[in-house]
Design a protein around this nucleic acid. Structure first.
Lengths: 169, 169
DNA sequence: CCCCGATAGTAGGACATCCAATGAATTGAC
DNA sequence: GTCAATTCATTGGATGTCCTACTATCGGGG
């Protein structure tokens, strides 16, 4: 059989057809919504696959990059969550794993003892550099679109984020 | 401080700026990748919020819809995973929850005892109808784009999926 | 007619994300 | 100055997704 893959057909098209039969219009919205989810799913899978050799996921890679960008070499966990726009508990989780992997270390913040700072270890710096190269090699999984199309896509997504209130007023 | 929200600024723009400083080009790819992830995150949050009154998530909603579309009124779990393009274990998980909620029931397939069929209960049918109305009311969280832009976005995402090998050859 | 490979569903484990609640520390208002 | 409100990080719980492994069943080839 040729059923070796779950991607043997286009379920979104198929689902779309069904939606038209049952609900008429408003189907385009549904198709766009599911497309975004699917693209994210595919892209994340490719990104994670490219990072697998380094033992990290894209979520943790983003944390490493953010810390490596910090001028002081370390960042409070709250800042990380803020910039990555994820819940504080997600940051705690990521830092827990990165720390147990020996890629980052937690330090106390002398000026504000509520805070915990995270900084890269030598190994962490090494990993983030190599991982970055690996991601560049796969064009961050967004190949398939010409540069101009990438701009276009970015602008459209930006409009969606804006409408969802993703930017400061 | 004005630090009352995690969305106080645009972390993607900020990160993009940093990327340019450190890595030069190849930054647009990064921006597009993170935008897609962010839009998906926002959209899913809005969809789940709209479905919360019904006690289901978008993932489970999709399962309900798929079953409601089936001509026979029931579907093998494998078909569900295939059409939604999720792993078989994700389907088992979703059906487990839906069944414990009394929205679907598992039945044995007489013709192939390896299979398990899932069908909607009366309550399941009621929920999927109301949930669909609720999602229509929020335009499936893809408002913010005019119909023409939605088409455009869909086409671009389709190209990305195609490049990622998401369609049959 | 039987056996090996393919298919269906599930169990267990790893990850990531969110929410609610908690404890510690800081800050602002009176 | 002191106390309440806020902020920071963490723990515990719920979801969803994937992978690996395992059992049961089906089916075609010898």
């Amino acid at each position: 059989m040729t059923e070796t893959s779950r991607l043997d057909f286009d379920p979104i098209e198929r689902a779309g057809q069904l939606w038209h039969e049952h609900f008429g219009e408003a189907t385009d919205e549904m198709l766009l919504a599911t497309s975004i989810m699917r693209v994210q799913q595919l892209m994340l899978a490719r990104l994670d696959a490219a990072l697998k050799p380094f033992g990290i996921t894209f979520a943790r890679y983003e944390v490493l990059v953010l810390i490596s960008f910090s001028r002081a070499g370390s960042l409070p966990l709250s800042k990380i969550g803020e910039r990555l726009m994820v819940h504080p508990t997600s940051v705690t989780n990521a830092i827990d794993r990165l720390e147990s992997q020996g890629l980052v270390v937690r330090e106390a913040d002398g000026s504000d003892r509520r805070r915990t700072l995270a900084s890269l270890t030598a190994e962490g710096r090494r990993v983030v550099e190599q991982a970055t190269r690996a991601l560049h090699d796969i064009d961050f999984a967004v190949d398939g679109l010409a540069p101009e199309q990438q701009r276009q896509a970015f602008d459209l997504l930006r409009a969606m984020r804006s409408a969802a209130g993703d930017f400061p007023a």
